[in-house]
Amino acid sequence: MSLGFDDLEASAWLHFESVAMALQSVVNRGLLHQHQLSLADVQLLGHLKAHGPSQMGTLAEMLMVTPSALTQQTQRLERRRLVRRNASNDDGRRVLAAITSEGTRLIEASLETYARLVRAHFLDELSRRQMIALGDGCRRISAKMKATDSNVEPTDG
């Protein structure tokens, strides 16, 4: 399958895509099994623990989900008493999500599981030099995507 790439490009892309999808699946399954949290839940709770109460719109953008999907996710986490939502003191129209003390306890254990899974299935397979090269390449790609993201309009294709 050429996908419009030369052999080296196709190989690099297909291996990256395959590993990214498989690793995300393994980590998600492990987190669900051990903590009844999805990878998306851990990303949300980890952000709230690190950055404090955050606006729902900002969270949806950061997590790359729709506001509706984030609302459903936070409602589910609220039922488990891991997150609470409140109106902003500055602007009552804005809703802030915050992690609860129960959420903080669970995210700490979940992040240990997350790190163990990523190490076992990804980092342990790379030398330090390979990690540096991979990290550098991903940083360059991310920076370019962020720089051009605001200038790109979706096409109807």
Rank of each mutant, 00 (worst) to 15 (best):
H15T: 14
F16C: 12
E17K: 12
S18T: 13
V19R: 15
V19G: 12
A20T: 15
A22Y: 13
A22M: 15
L23W: 08
V26C: 04
V26P: 04
V27S: 01
G30D: 09
G30I: 03
L31G: 00
H33M: 15
H33Q: 14
Q34R: 10
H35P: 05
D41C: 08
D41K: 01
V42F: 04
V42E: 00
V42M: 10
L44C: 00
G46A: 11
G46R: 08
H47E: 12
H47F: 10
L48C: 01
L48R: 03
A50F: 00
A50W: 02
H51R: 14
P53E: 10
Q55K: 12
M56F: 01
G57Q: 11
G57H: 07
T58A: 12
M62V: 02
V65I: 13
S68Y: 07
A69P: 04
T71V: 12
Q72A: 08
T74D: 00
Q75A: 10
E78L: 06
E78I: 09
E78V: 08
R79F: 02
R80P: 01
L82W: 09
V83F: 01
R84L: 09
R84A: 10
R85Y: 02
R85S: 05
N86Q: 14
N86S: 07
A87H: 15
A87G: 08
A87R: 14
S88T: 11
N89I: 04
D91A: 10
G92I: 12
R94E: 07
L96A: 05
L96E: 03
L96Q: 06
A97D: 03
A97T: 01
A98T: 08
A98G: 09
S101W: 14
G103P: 02
T104G: 04
L106S: 01
I107Q: 02
E108W: 02
S110N: 04
T113K: 01
Y114I: 10
A115K: 12
R116M: 13
R116Q: 12
L117W: 01
V118L: 07
V118K: 04
R119M: 07
F122C: 08
F122V: 04
L126D: 04
L126F: 05
L126I: 06
S127Y: 02
R128D: 11
R129H: 09
I132Q: 13
